[in-house]
């Protein structure tokens, strides 16, 4: 009864959820392209963390944002040379 009434009196989703969804997505794009330094900084720190456990080809490391129609993914391609003995 209450659910029905609250639906009737404005509980359903209006256009704002579309706005919020579109805004979220556009901001991921904006924020990613805003500072070119961001990807570099991210790369640096990724290397620092990963080299604790793995020996990687730092030159071959690639980090990109892959922008689809309704999603954005962080794609990292990290060539591994070997697993560190101490990490096993």
């Amino acid at each position: 009864m209450f659910e029905f009434l609250s639906k009737l009196f404005g509980g359903f989703e209006g256009s704002k959820s579309r706005a919020k969804e579109r805004l979220r997505l556009v901001l991921v794009h904006d924020r990613a392209s805003l500072s070119p330094g961001l990807v570099e900084a991210l790369k640096e720190e990724l290397i620092q963390v990963i080299t604790k456990y793995l020996e990687i080809d730092e030159e071959g490391l690639e980090v990109n944002f892959d922008k689809g129609d309704d999603s954005v993914a962080l794609i990292a391609n990290i060539p591994v040379k070997s697993v560190k003995r101490s990490a096993r």
Binding site: G10, F12, E13, G14, S15, K16, S17, A19, K20, L23, R24, L27
Partner: peptide, 16 residues
């Protein structure tokens, strides 16, 4: 408009 879901609320904007 916020009430009928046609305008982002304060908490929506805060989230973002």
């Amino acid at each position: 408009m916020v009430r009928r879901g046609d305008m982002m609320s304060i908490s929506d904007i805060d989230d973002i």
